[in-house]
């Protein structure tokens, strides 16, 4: 398994290095004439108001929350899915119950209106 990971590590290095080198070379080739107007933050031609790192609405958090729960849950299901062919009915029913509990959670969030984009 370590060999496979060695390949992935090398591949990642190559995949990151190639674009990085390309950008570096392009940076050498490209003209460099910065001026304050050009470097100003783009805001449809209007003067920039306030810091850019503004406040968000809670909506984003709620979606991220639902995602977090379902992500962790599906990760737990992957080992189960691998063993699925060798499992007795009891174990399958157990996983179905596991899923059903989370469907309940989804419907709670739905009823509560957490899944409506405002």
């Amino acid at each position: 398994m370590l060999n496979a990971w060695l390949y992935i590590g090398l591949f990642t290095l190559v995949a990151a290095a190639l674009p990085a080198i390309a950008i570096f070379l392009a940076g050498l080739l490209a003209p460099k004439k910065p001026n304050p107007i050009k470097n100003a933050t783009y805001e449809c031609g209007v003067e920039t108001v306030g810091p850019a790192w503004t406040q968000l609405r809670v909506q984003y958090y709620l979606f991220a929350l639902a995602f977090l729960i379902f992500d962790v849950e599906s990760v737990l299901l992957f080992p189960w899915a691998v063993a699925y062919q060798q499992l007795p009915l009891f174990a399958i029913v157990e996983a179905v119950i596991f899923l059903a509990i989370l469907v309940g959670g989804l419907f709670y969030a739905w009823r509560k209106g957490a899944l409506n984009w405002q």
Partner: peptide
């Protein structure tokens, strides 16, 4: 129990944030 814990976290967090 993990499933119930996740459910509780979902309900709790939605309730608190909402």
């Amino acid at each position: 129990v993990a499933s119930v814990l996740l459910l509780a976290a979902l309900i709790g967090a939605v309730y608190i944030a909402f």
